[in-house]
Nucleic acid binder design. Structure first.
Lengths: 221, 221
DNA sequence: GCGCAAGTCGACCGTACGGTGTACGATGGG
DNA sequence: CCCATCGTACACCGTACGGTCGACTTGCGC
């Protein structure tokens, strides 16, 4: 094992940042400049401009502002950029900055390969910590974000669902049929069927697909 | 925003550790002692002994060795301990140490409330980083662990979906039936039906619920 | 005690779904 | 030129789903 002691500042972590918002770019640049263990390779305003960084062998961590404006219909360009970046440079850590805790966008970012998610409201020193976490190959999730993604129990109370209905909703999202749910919960199919119907009434839906989508979008599951 | 500069070492992070293995306890104690920003409140060999720490208001981070031996059938005692700890002290961060990357055990630990997961093979300085991440309220996952939990390469390529299939996938996510999709796209129901089946094959699913969930999680919609 | 909510089952019915075939025209790369 | 792919289209079948009744037990609060 390696003793930890005071870290030599010889090897600095090389960071590049991508954001379409001027203010964010400035703030992030200041953030990187304010930490002697970090080193900036530059800032880009668009994914296209950021292509350059991907060719830089020194690059270790990429800061991406996911609120990159995009057409509402198509997939978010920020997510697409993360995917291409991770495809071309799997060794580079990606930290994505989020304005809010939209679960779908978060999952999309992580699925695309993001190694960390921070909110833009996160204090500087924590983002600096997160950058180092990413450089170490680890995953960093801000408290608010991990609450949504990993500890969904907290937001479970959002809907006025009974515990049993929440169990079933979760299993519906997991793609199980009524029969499979019955087997897993040790109940009869008829019971599950009743629960499912009542669950639909409470969610205001008529089929399990919309129930699952609503649950995901609402962060219930 | 708060400037970061050199951190004052006045406020140290109070850590307690629980592990049934002597070696791990020793190693972790050394790890905590080796970082001047950390402060040890003690070490416990069993969940019962660790109850004491939960009454200590200074406690900020709890290191739990999840390999706490238990009967294979029942729930792991480590997981149960994490749950009770988080119930009694939601403010305390829990870092759980894992011997391997068993996905079920990992998910169980996170569901129970763990804020970070590290492998026992992780270098000291990273575990120290993780402890500080947890103290900051964030989530830390080691690279190997996040690979299993957050970046499941489910071979989900939106690229190899035909445009028509993407249309239909989107409408499936929106909760429409095959008949409604047919009406919206101006095709026969049987045609949509065929597309849906082929779409399932490409996504590797058997029902539209899983297809919708996969699409959402992958950020296709 | 009473009501009420949650949970547990049963039966019935119509329909949409999922699975498997087959078929034809258009397009495009080898 | 051929073959693969895609989009289109149809038929058949079994099953699970969604909807609607009703009935029973348990636990909680008043």
């Amino acid at each position: 094992m390696i003793a930890s002691g005071p870290r030599p500042t010889v090897t600095r972590t090389a960071v590049a940042l991508v954001s379409d918002q001027f203010l964010t770019r400035e703030a992030l640049a200041e953030l990187v400049a304010g930490d002697e263990e970090l080193e900036s390779l530059g800032a880009a305003a668009s994914p296209a401009d950021a292509e350059l960084f991907l060719s830089d062998p020194r690059l270790q961590v990429l800061l991406v502002n996911l609120s990159l404006a995009g057409s509402p219909g198509a997939a978010a360009p920020g997510v697409a950029f993360i995917r291409t970046a991770k495809t071309r440079r799997p060794d580079v850590g990606v930290l994505s900055l989020k304005r809010g805790v939209d679960e779908l966008l978060l999952r999309a970012a992580l699925d695309a390969g993001a190694d960390a998610c921070c909110l833009v409201t996160t204090p500087f020193d924590r983002i600096q910590q997160a950058i180092k976490a990413v450089a170490a190959g680890a995953t960093w999730l801000d408290a608010e974000i991990s609450q949504v993604l990993l500890h969904p129990r907290a937001s479970f109370d959002a809907a006025h669902l009974s515990p049993r209905e929440r169990d079933i909703l979760r299993l519906i999202v997991d793609g199980y049929s009524n029969a499979e749910i019955a087997a897993q919960l040790g109940s009869a199919q008829a019971t599950i069927h009743t629960h499912v119907i009542r669950l639909f009434r409470k969610l205001g839906v008529n089929d399990r697909v919309t129930a699952a989508v609503r649950a995901l979008r609402a962060g219930i599951v």
